[in-house]
Design a binder for these strands. Structure first.
Lengths: 347, 347
DNA sequence: GACTACTGTGGGAGCGCTCCCACACTGTGT
DNA sequence: ACACAGTGTGGGAGCGCTCCCACAGTAGTC
């Protein structure tokens, strides 16, 4: 009937100890894979554990050991809407995969509205997680600093600037963009325009740099009239495309810094009577659902999002256990993963 | 330097009590909004709490009260890939919104591979969460039963059959499909075909029923040659469309039970030289990104996914606290939320 | 034979809460 | 005057662990 009845309840470590004919301490040592337990007693304890179906009580462990065996994944809500598409679930999958081996929980927290952010800050101050994974942090976000003050290990995805101080995992935006542009050059395109994201976003900036470097490497001059700045939205992509067509009607290729902007560009190109890829080749970035279902299917730069998630989680776990081992070693390494161009019919 | 130094550490309830000049019990009562505390002492305690920046220790609370203040959202991985698109993030957003008010954590668990499912079962047996949210459960899934045995409150999304026994939240698939078909009839379409999902999936079955009922209500006979069964994939949709065109070349409208299948159908229609919507009107289901970015943009039935998430979470919280209040009231209510047709250029 | 030097092991203390019993105090009725 | 319920309140006990000190046992050394 009730959940914690006398003898029917879940077994405790103490009961395991009695069953195995050893002390509590010994059982604890076995459970935690600690050293210095004779093979014999270890076997006895393990037998008792399986017989009783013992599962450690997480709360008790957390209380006694002053840790949580949980990390938080913080999702900035408003953004999520944009780049949510496969991104979100892929990150989660990667993180989940990395965590599957450990017995660390993944706690999901949304931080969209200001109210939610305040709650989050308060939540984190309660030290209810051992570490935090931050996805797509803005340059001015106070969260990383707060976490540093609280001494909570943090890993972010995507550098906020070239001089990122926090441990982070990023994809090689520059190389990805460069590859896209090189691909267009290889296809014989001569006048390649680009639609960028907001340039205060570091990733967007890198993609533009990649565009420039690829052209430069091919000995082509970079015509600034072929660069249009947008905001990662479809409407923005559309507007940018309109501008580009006006400024350089002779363009024959466009590299958009996101699939969604590419979708906007495609609409505008169609409206202007240009066919894809015949008149204008189009390449996007993200390799999202949008890319796969566009007409024609969009060539796009694929980020290894799942792997980024996995890497982030692993880095964080390392820092968590590192700190537990009293090392204060700061100075975050930045892991940069390669991107891959997925060629489809649009180019 | 270290995280749990002597006097710099986070304040405990006891310290709050001392500061406020009251006993521990009283502070606990105030914190938990419990009854029977005089306004005066309550104010004093609250002052002490803010002065000290007190945040209750979740682990201690969980241990003492034998609850977790956490619920799990179980995501069946393989599926996630398909219907992940906005679905996943929207559910999470809804659940998160509902949880924001309480101080319940959202723990995310993936259950893709068999190994992961075993780990999950083991995890859940540890009673580490107060309740579980199950997304898209298959008819034969043993998880619900396991949870019932463990006495862990559960809410699922989507009924597994007409006689769903578990508390669940679903969208009105039948009515949504019927509305889509009615819309096509209103547009003057005469020969409306449908592409269904696998019929052992209850939701797919309902959508087909909606199709039939709408036709019947309009006094149209249901021609079984206009029904093609597919599997929710794009390729399946394509194949089904091919069949339909062969069997009934004169069709002038198609209702597909998912946007992805509609995308497949669209490809096949194009290949067959039919224009959309001029020759054939097309309607999908889900109102996913695919629908918005299709060419032409796809009319689709929108499920209130975020609200479903919110509702699920609320139901679960209710059951969790209900059970805590020792009521064993079983017999799950099924909440069915209305769908809405989003009309775009494809019809 | 007494010394140190390990290796395993048992179990006390304590983590920060909640639960609940006991104890003031107030009133009200006899 | 006495008993009685009712309201606030204090604080003991205990949740199930981990940490760590103490101690028994064995082995090697002077």
């Amino acid at each position: 009937m009730n959940g914690n009845g006398r003898s029917g309840g879940r077994p405790t470590l103490e009961e395991v100890a009695v069953r195995a004919g050893v002390g509590r301490g010994t059982v604890s040592r076995v459970i935690n894979g600690s050293s210095k337990v004779s093979e014999q007693t270890k076997a006895a304890v393990e037998a008792a554990v399986t017989e009783l179906g013992y599962v450690p009580n997480r709360a008790a462990r957390a209380l006694a050991a002053n840790r949580n065996d949980a990390i938080a994944l913080v999702i900035p809500e408003p953004e999520a809407r944009f780049f949510a598409e496969p991104y979100f679930s892929e990150v989660v999958r990667g993180v989940g995969a990395a965590l599957a081996e450990t017995d660390t929980q993944l706690v999901l927290t949304l931080a969209g509205s200001d109210r939610e952010r305040r709650r989050l800050a308060q939540y984190l101050s309660g030290h209810r997680v051992d570490g935090v994974l931050l996805v797509s942090v803005h340059a001015g976000d106070p969260l990383p600093e707060l976490l540093a003050e609280l001494g909570i290990p943090t890993v972010i995805s995507g550098r906020r600037s070239a001089a990122e101080t926090l441990p982070c995992v990023d994809s090689d935006n520059l190389a990805g963009a460069a590859e896209a542009v090189r691909h267009l050059l290889d296809r014989g395109r001569r006048t390649i325009a680009t639609i960028t994201g907001p340039l205060d976003v570091y990733g967007a900036h890198c993609r533009l740099d990649g565009y420039r470097q690829a052209l430069a490497a091919a000995g082509r001059p970079v015509d600034e009239r072929l660069v249009a700045v947008a905001d990662f939205t479809e409407e923005g992509g559309r507007r940018a495309m309109r501008e580009l067509l006006e400024r350089s009607p002779s363009l024959d290729a466009v590299f958009a810094s996101s699939d969604v902007m590419a979708a906007g560009a495609r609409r505008e190109l169609r409206a202007a009577g240009r066919t894809i890829p015949h008149d204008v080749a189009l390449v996007g970035f993200d390799d999202s659902v949008v890319a796969r279902h566009m007409d024609p299917p969009l060539t796009s730069v694929r980020q290894p999002i799942e792997e980024m998630g996995r890497t982030m989680a692993r880095m964080l776990l390392e820092r968590v256990s590192g700190r537990r081992g009293s090392t204060g070693a700061e100075g975050g390494p930045a892991v940069v993963l390669p991107n891959r161009l997925v060629v489809r019919e649009s180019s």
